[in-house]
Design a binder for these strands. Structure first.
Lengths: 132, 132
DNA sequence: GTAAGCCTTGACGCGGGCGTCAAGGCAAGA
DNA sequence: TCTTGCCTTGACGCCCGCGTCAAGGCTTAC
């Protein structure tokens, strides 16, 4: 299949596929007239990339998965290098979630404090009877 | 005080302060030779901006706080417009945390599945002088 | 005098993942 | 033949919060 069809089947754009090619992911064969040609394996590979992207992996992080599939493995995460990326991502996610949770608490506290100080502000969902 | 001292006292750079000025936050008086001059109120204002930035607010979102301080209020969040930003940020944080938590679960599941399929994979955290 | 250390404006760079336009080639249908 | 619709490469734009030069002016110390 050609680039337009592949893009459509993967729910992305031709621009994106060409970009991946410049990055060394998703290489393409060429027909006589210079058109890129892809097969079902390329689609699978592309879907692997897109799934990871949706998870927030950046492109470089998808490379081990791509190489794993290229090496003939059944899944992109059938290789140790991919698992390393998974684990690192989990750690990053945990750290980020923790940080955001902390920020959320601080902003929430600021809001509560400020609402208590602004006359028309409190917008009470209940009687916040403090420990005063 | 001049820009270098203000930057140092706020733990930032002169470049950042000039950037804030182009954005309309943190305006400065000028001395005869064209140097920017700031006072303690400017420092307070700048610290307000920095605190919010640390929380992940983007610059535009700090504007209501800045204007609130400029209007003479004791705190940047002493105005309804600031509270609106707080509330919106809380909603964004909640949505983001929820999404990240979902992604974390999915990635964790993928890792577990892949580890079970890869022979040498599980990689138990033994021998690494852990918390055992 | 001159060197050091502050200040000024202007302008380009960066990172990431593309969007979007430009200018043109190839294939197929009416 | 001409139009339509795909394809090609190249290159600039965008977002955001600055970093990092460049080229020069002011002030103070020696």
């Amino acid at each position: 299949m050609r680039i337009g069809e592949l893009a459509a089947r993967a729910g992305t754009t031709t621009r994106t596929l060409r970009y991946y090619e410049t990055r060394g992911l998703l290489t393409a064969r060429r027909t006589g007239n210079g058109y890129r040609t892809y097969d079902e394996d390329d689609l699978k590979l592309l879907r692997q990339i897109r799934t990871l992207q949706d998870f927030g992996f950046d492109l470089e992080e998808t490379r081990p998965f791509v190489e794993c599939l290229r090496a003939g493995h059944p899944e992109g995460d059938s290789c140790p290098a991919s698992l390393v990326v998974y684990r690192r991502k989990l750690a990053e996610l945990d750290a980020l979630i923790e940080q955001l949770t902390s920020v959320r608490a601080q902003v929430g506290a600021q809001l509560a404090r400020a609402e208590a100080a602004v006359p028309g502000g409190p917008e009470p969902k209940c009687e916040l009877g403090g420990h005063a």
